[in-house]
Structures are given as structure tokens and as C-alpha cells.
Design a protein around this nucleic acid. Sequence first.
DNA 1: AAATAATGTGTAAACGTTTTTATAAACCTT
DNA 2: AAGGTTTATAAAAACGTTTACACATTATTT
Lengths: 336, 336
Amino acid sequence: MKTTIKDVAELAGVSIATVSRVLNNKDRVNANTRKKVQQAIQALDFKPSTIARSMINNETHTIGLLIPLLSNEFWSNFAEGIEQLLWDHGYTTNLFMADNNSFDKMKAIMKTIENKRLDGIILCSVPQLPEQVKELSEMIVAANIPAVTFEFSLPGIPSVKGDHIQGGCMAVEHLIRFGHRSIAYIGGPEISIAREMGFRQAHLLHNIPCQEALIQYGKPTVDFGREAMKKLLVSDMIHTAVFCANDLLAIGAMEAIHARGLQIPQDVSVVGYDNIKACEYVTPQLTTIVQPVPQMTRLLVETLLEAKDDLSHVSNRNFILPMEIKVRGTTGPVKA
Amino acid sequence: MKTTIKDVAELAGVSIATVSRVLNNKDRVNANTRKKVQQAIQALDFKPSTIARSMINNETHTIGLLIPLLSNEFWSNFAEGIEQLLWDHGYTTNLFMADNNSFDKMKAIMKTIENKRLDGIILCSVPQLPEQVKELSEMIVAANIPAVTFEFSLPGIPSVKGDHIQGGCMAVEHLIRFGHRSIAYIGGPEISIAREMGFRQAHLLHNIPCQEALIQYGKPTVDFGREAMKKLLVSDMIHTAVFCANDLLAIGAMEAIHARGLQIPQDVSVVGYDNIKACEYVTPQLTTIVQPVPQMTRLLVETLLEAKDDLSHVSNRNFILPMEIKVRGTTGPVKA
DNA sequence: AAATAATGTGTAAACGTTTTTATAAACCTT
DNA sequence: AAGGTTTATAAAAACGTTTACACATTATTT
């Protein structure tokens, strides 16, 4: 049997109230009794039950983290950051995976979170349909649980997003600065449409026509990157650079370019997005857009903990964070 | 205010005991009352408090997962597998990171786990010193919490390990089969020593002398892989292949080989370990040893849940799982 | 020295469930 | 129709804490 506060009280010869008092050192306790109690705690190796406490405080000191999946470098870095910050603030992380945004799974998870009375939730898994957004929103209101969202927003709930329009724009402007005027895009619906909007915006800003024939849509994988690039290279469309909506696509594209016997960046420049580790492992190293993950996680955690104290204070905070570009070896001036 | 079982009872016009009975449908309840109660539950959107339940059942339906870090492909894949399996079994995963095996952090985590009365713990973070192993072991006994360990063992606690001696041996035998007789090793103390033992065992088995001068120790990073290989290539020691204790080292080694103007595998064959995704992104694709992660996670979860019911039943289970080799483009016959 | 304030500690209620025990009503037996 | 079962429900105790309240002691004021 676990030792309880009662055992400690008995051994120390005091009431359980007194033990509780030294445990929480809130009320004042006589120095001698305090010592006696502390010795008893030591002797019995007493660990107060967090769940009994939760019954009274309505606090579990546990936060739910809901992400699409973990076997993806972006999300695992992200989750690592969240876990560390929460731990530093005295909270424990309950990890939930939404199986790549399955809404049924999300609903089941929300129910579990409510049953477990978690202190808050960080929502990173994006509902796909508008009615799902509404349903999720209603669930959170009904559950009355502090929440923050990442990469999407819900009415009245603080959010953090990356500015992917700016990110996409920055990638393309980098290419334009190198003299490129025919730039291809490889992306797809599973990655935020914003990156493509940035691609278009850069063209607009610099008065360069955007060639629809150079745009390829598909799954965000190395395989599709390779296939898409292969198609682009076979076509007679001239293009001297390609912007890929994520690094995996870019790595695939690089393979196709090399397979065709072309040089990077002399023949074709390539820009990726996300800055996964593999960017440094490919040859040449991949120029890419890097997301400010440390800042993102910090804002999410801090905002959530503030929301716990007073939601109205932060409910209108919607951060949009700028990307940065990491220039490496896959981009260079257009051939003379 | 949260709606409680009391509210439901009132609305349905029954006692809270009856509500509890339909909730757990254990005892028999009249069909009519059951319906009334279920309607009341619906109407109030009642979600029973897991923590109040925990007080009585001594079950939190939460398992602690303690890993060294998440921003490492092996561990994030691993954690993803564990989370999915636990969810399927009706458990929630509480994630803890030991900051790359800091023992102080591990102790703090163990205390938290005990306070929170988690139902069990999957320990993947390896204490470094023998006295730490002993201390951890004592903590688990004192906490009386079901546990399983991964990649190390504690007395009386079930464990799952990869057979890295066999894995290392398999890697080297693959090279030997290709005719290689001078094989270098790049590894280090931060990766299980077993892989090096496998390297040696393969030499022994095939009666090939193991050349100590071809062994390089350092941090398990791409950078060290590159530096180590550079040294090996500069030395006048002849070697036609290198076995790296993980894929990052192998990727670094490949860079150094290419930088020297040599061809893989024509001039030097390379074998890695772990099968990270980047293996497929480098040119040529990296031959490597793959760990049976799905089987590992399955055994850990199943054994832990059995241990919860009856520890003595499983306490002597110590699984050692064989590795497999994934042959790709970095290994080939030794030059004639 | 009496009145008042400050200090320290115990008692008991509360948190939201499950479960044991008790009891009433309905159903069988004969 | 009396006794014995079965069925359905309620009342109350329990889980391990915190905390409001009460009370006794001691210290400080006047």
C-alpha cells in the first residue's frame, strides 16, 4: 500500500491538516512541528497524490499536445520544444496524435482531454472542412478548456501562425535577385496554400509573369518531388529555378535534376522549405526557408498559461511570425 | 461549473449510484431508468471525471514514456509507435524527455510519475553509471510502478533490446561477402558499444585481423563522421570499406569520400546503422542496418500492460531482437 | 491584570466518483 | 397466502488531499 498523508500524520504525531500545511507551506507552522513532519515524510518516503490534489484544486498540471504526427522532423522538433517549455513551467505533456488530421480521432482525443480534466491544450492538428472547424470550436467552448491553436485559428482563441506567404515570397525573391525570371513551383494541397500565394506574390511585386505551366501539385514527398521535376525538365518550358513547398519535395527535385545530368545551381537553382536536417546532407546543401520554431513554441506555451489565468486577456492574440531564409549551395545566379 | 454525476442524477430523478451503474454498465439497471439516465447525460453533456475515478480505482490510464530526446529520427518514430499502441489499448501517453540521459532530470521525472500515479512507465533513457542504474532500480521498486526498459535492463524488470552485436556483425559480414578485408569503423561511446563488438565478432568469425588503426571514436554526428573519414583517407592504411555506428556518421563519411574525389562504392563501401530517412536522400543511397521498431514498440507495450496485471508473470522476459540489413547503393564488391 | 491580538493546530467538510450494504418492491414457489 | 428469491434502487463509506472554521495557547497591548 502507498503511504498517505495519514501515515505521515500518525508518525509525526500531528493531524493531517498540519502535514498538508508543511507540504504546501502556505499557513504558518511551528518550526519544531515542521521538522517532525518533514522527518516523517522522509522516513516514509511519502509522495503526495497529485490526483487527490487535483480533485480540490481543479488543476492537473498536465497539458495536452495534439499534433498530426510525430514521424516528421518538423513536428518532432516542435513537440520537443513544447515538452521542454512545459516542463520548465511545472507542467507535464500529454501527447496525442491525430493520425494526420483524422477528425474522428481529434474528436475522440478532445473527449479524453475533457474527461482527464487537462489544464489546457495546444492544438496543432488542423480540421480540414469548415464544418469541422465549427464543431471543434464548439467542443472547446463546451469543454471550457484553455486552448491555443497553431497554424489555424478559431474564434476567441489565441493562435500562432507562420507567415508562409512572406516565406514563399522571400524564397522566390531570393531567386529573382539572382536573376531568375522563369521559376517553377512544386507543392500541393496537403501543405498550406500560403506558400504558393507567396510564390505568386513575389512575381506580382517584381512584375514577372507567373507561368501556370510551371506549377506542379501532388503529395508532399520526395517521390513526388522527383516525378514533378522530371516532368518539368522534359517539357520545353524554360525555367532556371524551382521553389518547392517543402524540403522533401526539393530533395526529390534535386535527384531528378542530377539524374538528367544537370548541375545545381549552375543549371537549375532549388529552394526548399522547413529546414530539415537532411538539407545539410544533400549535395549541394539545400537553400531553404526556416521556421522560427523556438519562438513559436515559446509563444504557444506562454499564451496558453496566461489563458489559463484569464482567457479574455489573451483571446485576441493572433501571432503571425516571419520566416527566415537559410542560403546554402543550391541557389546561384542564372547562367549568362 | 462542470456538470457532475450529481446533476445528472437530479435531472434523471435517481441516485448518483444509479447513474454510476449505467455509466459503467456493470450492475443491472432497469431499462427505463437506464434510458432516463442516458438522456440526462446527453442533455447535460456530462463527462465523468477521470481523476475522481482514479481516486477509487487506483488507475489513471496514463503511461509515462521516458526517452532521451525527440529531435532524433529514431526516437520520434519510436515514440509515435508507442503512442499509437497505447491509444489503441485505451491509454494516454505522458511524454518525458531526459535531456539526453541527464540523471538528475530522470530522477525528477520519476518523482513526477510517482506523484501522478501513472499506471506504468516505459524507460528508454539509459543511466550512464552503475550506481545510477542501482539508484533507478531502487526508485522503481520503491515507487512500485510497473515498468519496462528499452536498450538496458534492470533486475526483475522486463526489457526489450536490439541485438546490436548481431547487427554490427551482419553489417561487416555483408562487406566481407563483397571481398573486403580492410574495414574501418567509426563509432563512439555515446552509441551502444555493442555495434563495435559486432564489428569485431565478424572479423573473428571470418578469421580476418581487426586493424585497430582503422577505428575512430567520437560524437555520433555528421561532422565527426566527415572528420574521422578524412583522417582515415589521409593515412596510408589501406581500407576499402567503412562501417559507421549510425547513419549520421555514415553520411559524414560519404561527404569526406566524395570530397577526396573517390567513388562510392567503387573505391570505398559504406554501411550505416538505424535506417533514417536521409539514407534514401544521399547519393548513392546508403546501405544500413534497420532496427525492428514496430516489433520493439509492440513488445514493450504488451509486456507493460501484462506487467500491470501481474508482474511476476513477465518479470523474467528479456527480449533481444535481431536486426535486418537494408542493402542499397553504398556497398559493392571490392575493386579488382 | 485584564483585554486583545497573534500563533499554532485540530476537526470536519469538500472535491466527484465507485462500490458495499441495506432495503423495498416485484416475482416466484408451494 | 406465507415464505423465499430476484430485481432495482438508495444511502453511505471510501479514495487522499486541501481548507474553512473553531479553539486553545501564548504574546502583546492597555
